[in-house]
Amino acid sequence: MKISEAKAKELAAQALKARENSYCPYSDFAVGAALLCADGSVYTGCNIETAAFNGCCAERTAIFTAAAQGKREFTAIAVAGAGRGSEPDFFCTPCGVCRQVMREFCRPDFDIILTDGKDIKAVTLDGLLPMAFGPDSLE
């Protein structure tokens, strides 16, 4: 993990807090994310669902919000997910689409911090998406 354990725990706490804004009336599964930018700023996101089942995950909400503000360099992201109204009791990992979006903006050694509400677990993007197709694949 490239960031300190204290910073990882801080991001995890922000991801847990971001879950409170989740709009998940169809899946009843609330996810929050906290994205750490290279400049130290943090953008949070939550999952937002629609009746047409084409919503956006918490991780992409955070990344797209940061990107819309001109941020392009990211250091780590924390993710927390569980049933709406329940506290997390497992390490919720990003979906495949979110992993691919992360690969667009992040290096393979990008830190992904998972929390079950009590503990944290750090993995890398390369660990979750090995042999990824990214921008460098087009060079």
Rank of each mutant, 00 (worst) to 15 (best):
V42Q: 05
S86I: 08
C37A: 10
S27G: 11
D126K: 14
L114A: 07
R99E: 11
L36F: 05
C37T: 03
F53R: 15
A6W: 11
G70Y: 11
T124Q: 11
P88C: 01
S41E: 15
F105A: 02
D109N: 09
C106F: 02
G45P: 00
Y43H: 15
M1V: 08
Q100R: 14
A68L: 11
L129P: 03
D126R: 12
V101I: 14
A58P: 03
A8L: 04
K2A: 14
C37H: 05
D111P: 04
E10R: 10
I113P: 05
G32T: 05
K71L: 11
D126F: 06
L138G: 10
T61S: 14
G127Y: 03
K2F: 04
G85I: 06
V101C: 12
P135E: 12
A80Q: 03
A34Y: 03
F29S: 00
K71P: 05
D39A: 09
K121A: 11
F64E: 13
D89W: 07
R84W: 05
N47P: 10
N54M: 15
E73C: 07
L129N: 08
I3G: 08
F110G: 04
R103D: 10
I3L: 13
G85M: 08
D116A: 09
A12W: 08
C24H: 08
A52T: 10
K2P: 02
C98P: 06
G45W: 00
V101Q: 06
S27D: 04
V31D: 01
A78F: 04
C57F: 13
G85W: 04
G55I: 08
K2S: 14
R72L: 13
G96P: 04
V97E: 12
G32C: 02
E49T: 04
D119M: 11
I63T: 06
C92P: 07
R72Q: 12
D136L: 15
D109I: 00
E59P: 12
F64P: 01
Q14M: 15
